[in-house]
Computed example of a mutant assay.
Amino acid sequence: MARRLPNFSALRAFEAAARHENFSRAAEELHLTHGAISHQVRGLEEELGRALFVRNGRQVKITNDGLKFAQFLGKAFADIAAATDAMRATSINQRLTITSIPSFAARWLAPRLGKFIELHPDIEVVLQSSGHMQDLAREGVDVGIRFGRGNYPGMVVFRLMGDVYYPVVSPHYRGGKLPSTPADLARHTLLRSVEHWTPWLHAAGVDMPEPSGGLLFEDLSMLIRCAADGNGVALVRHVVAMQEIASGQLLRLFNIATPSPDEYFFVTPPNSANKPQVLAFRAWLLEEIEAFQRSSANAWAKPL
Rank of each mutant, 00 (worst) to 15 (best):
M1R: 13
N7Y: 13
L11Y: 10
L11V: 11
R12E: 09
H39T: 12
Q40A: 04
G43A: 04
L44W: 06
E46Y: 02
R50I: 04
F53V: 09
Q59G: 03
Q59V: 09
V60W: 05
N64M: 14
A78S: 12
D79M: 14
A81Q: 15
A83L: 13
T84N: 14
M87F: 10
I92Q: 13
Q94N: 13
R95P: 12
T97D: 05
T99V: 07
P111N: 01
I117Y: 02
L119P: 09
H120I: 11
D122I: 08
D135F: 03
R138V: 13
I145H: 02
F158N: 08
V164W: 02
Y165D: 07
P167S: 05
V169R: 00
R174C: 14
S180I: 15
T181I: 15
T181E: 12
S193Q: 04
E195T: 13
P199F: 08
W200M: 08
H202L: 11
M208E: 10
P209C: 08
S212N: 14
L215V: 14
D219Q: 05
R225F: 15
C226I: 11
N231F: 01
G232C: 00
V236R: 04
E244K: 14
E244I: 09
G248H: 09
Q249Y: 04
D262F: 07
V267I: 00
P270M: 02
A273S: 10
P276M: 02
F281M: 09
A301T: 11
